[in-house]
Amino acid sequence: MDEEYDVIVLGTGLTECILSGIMSVNGKKVLHMDRNPYYGGESSSITPLEELYKRFQLLEGPPESMGRGRDWNVDLIPKFLMANGQLVKMLLYTEVTRYLDFKVVEGSFVYKGGKIYKVPSTETEALASNLMGMFEKRRFRKFLVFVANFDENDPKTFEGVDPQTTSMRDVYRKFDLGQDVIDFTGHALALYRTDDYLDQPCLETVNRIKLYSESLARYGKSPYLYPLYGLGELPQGFARLSAIYGGTYMLNKPVDDIIMENGKVVGVKSEGEVARCKQLICDPSYIPDRVRKAGQVIRIICILSHPIKNTNDANSCQIIIPQNQVNRKSDIYVCMISYAHNVAAQGKYIAIASTTVETTDPEKEVEPALELLEPIDQKFVAISDLYEPIDDGCESQVFCSCSYDATTHFETTCNDIKDIYKRMAGTAFDFENMKRKQNDVFGEAEQ
């Protein structure tokens, strides 16, 4: 370990593993360490099931009705991949897709007046949907046509809207959309967690709705994908990429100290040895004095023996409960997957309800979601602090990732990755940087 590296990475969460992969592909010498004996950090999948019970201090362990412990891979952080989103792009560019198998999530649902409705995925579904009345549908269709044709580089498509100054509230007004449709559009399509976006320039919202539609167009059922064997497969896929390009991995490796000289990182000390480096990437748990708390998320993992009611017996789905429907500031989400994804025993389902904490009784906040899941065989409640770095790391060369937020997709995580890359490399992130180099010394032969 007593060696000189360009970059040392602490923690094998998804953000850290993707950055480690990119740095290795770009010719950097990388050492990647984790104090845990497993990959994934906060974003790991726990197996066998006995391990999950232990982690949540349920000492009696799983009953026999849960089947074989080894058949379970339970995500600690519930997220899906947008089919046309940035993480899929990263997987394709790096060819990490060859280590993973994905399934399309069967449906996306939205909560309205105590019931759940399928988010329409085709024009026919939209016309048949009970989510809105006849005239509302016509106006909504006009709005969707506007979004589909919108091109930020072609003012002819703006229809009198200025993407940089017109607020989204004004765009909704222009198409005369009612409150329910606005809730549905902002939260189930643009996937905002709160209503803060309404008074911001509309460009980002329009682009988010386009991303949803384009992702949906790829597979038809929903815009989301999920990897077989759980999300823990993602960091491992990128760790393989890093290793192929010469990255060194050490799990179960305690970090005793991060060594600084004149305010700059110069190395990491572990078990009496020092590895030197020019730059350091880590998750917040490794540098508690360089991060601040930015809120909390509650996630309740529920094991069920039945599909969720009114989802047409889907073996995977997402449910969004827009905040307006339950008098909150932030949406509540449910991600459900099952034995069909090799993450649970035969006939079992895993539904994870999550939201940003707003009160001193977080469990009560998630109740509307839990009511949709009854009866629940077993619950595991996790309340996590969200951390963000206190500075950009440019001076110390210590670059810290943000905690995983309450969103049900990876777009915010990818933004964090691109942002850290830019601060480390001094140049904007470009997907081309992730391409495997042809015929290089570490390149794998085609399968």
Rank of each mutant, 00 (worst) to 15 (best):
L81Q: 00
F56C: 03
F431R: 14
V105D: 02
F410V: 08
V343F: 15
Q164N: 07
V274A: 06
N312T: 13
K329Y: 14
L304C: 05
A445Q: 06
M134R: 06
Y404D: 09
K278R: 12
N252H: 11
N312D: 09
T97I: 07
F431L: 11
E374Y: 11
P155A: 06
S65N: 13
G113K: 05
R423H: 08
N73H: 12
V265E: 02
Y421R: 12
A314T: 08
Y339D: 14
V105M: 09
N315H: 13
E16T: 01
I287T: 09
K278I: 06
G267R: 02
Q378L: 04
R98F: 13
I390M: 09
H306P: 04
I22V: 07
I321T: 03
I259D: 14
C17W: 03
P284A: 06
K278S: 13
V206T: 06
I383G: 03
D154K: 14
S213N: 12
D6V: 02
S215D: 04
N433D: 11
D331C: 13
E432D: 04
A275D: 00
F431A: 02
C317R: 02
Y421L: 06
M250K: 11
C317F: 04
S401Y: 01
V381K: 14
D101H: 11
R169I: 14
I332M: 05
A382C: 02
G393A: 12
G393W: 03
N342D: 10
S316Q: 03
G114Y: 13
K103E: 10
F410A: 15
Y245N: 13
L304M: 10
L91P: 02
S65K: 12
D2S: 03
L241S: 06
E214C: 01
V266A: 08
L58I: 10
E4V: 11
P368Q: 00
D162N: 09
A243E: 05
K435R: 11
G160D: 04
S222C: 10
G85N: 00
Y39D: 01
T408P: 07
I209C: 04
M66A: 01
G220V: 07
S24Y: 00
R70L: 06
M434F: 12
S44Y: 00
K422T: 06
Q325W: 10
F109T: 05
A217S: 07
R138Q: 08
Y349R: 10
S330P: 02
E374W: 14
F431G: 02
L49I: 14
V326Y: 03
S108N: 09
Y212I: 09
Q200L: 14
S24A: 03
P254F: 15
G247V: 04
T185A: 11
N130C: 04
H187S: 15
E363K: 05
E16R: 02
R276T: 15
K112F: 02
R292S: 04
I301S: 08
M90A: 14
D391C: 14
K309D: 13
W72L: 02
A188S: 05
K118H: 01
N310R: 00
N252Q: 13
V171G: 06
R290G: 15
S401W: 01
N153H: 14
D101G: 11
V119Q: 03
M66S: 00
N153E: 15
E214V: 08
P37S: 08
G247C: 07
G178F: 14
N26S: 09
S108I: 02
G232A: 08
G41S: 09
K269N: 08
T97A: 11
C414I: 13
G27E: 06
I209W: 03
I116M: 03
Y39L: 08
G178E: 06
T12A: 07
G393N: 01
V181L: 01
M132V: 11
E395V: 13
G107F: 05
L58K: 08
F429V: 11
E42Q: 06
F158V: 06
P389A: 08
N310H: 12
N327L: 01
G237C: 09
M336R: 02
P78R: 08
K142Y: 03
A128M: 09
R436S: 00
M33S: 14
L373A: 04
D180K: 01
K293M: 09
Q438L: 03
L211P: 15
N310S: 08
T47A: 07
I18V: 09
I46Y: 14
E367Y: 02
V7E: 07
A275R: 03
L280V: 13
V441Y: 15
V181I: 11
E152Q: 14
D391A: 14
A445S: 11
D6H: 01
H187R: 09
Y212A: 11
C335F: 07
L14S: 13
D6C: 13
N36K: 05
K422G: 15
I22S: 00
F175L: 05
G160H: 04
V147M: 03
Y117V: 03
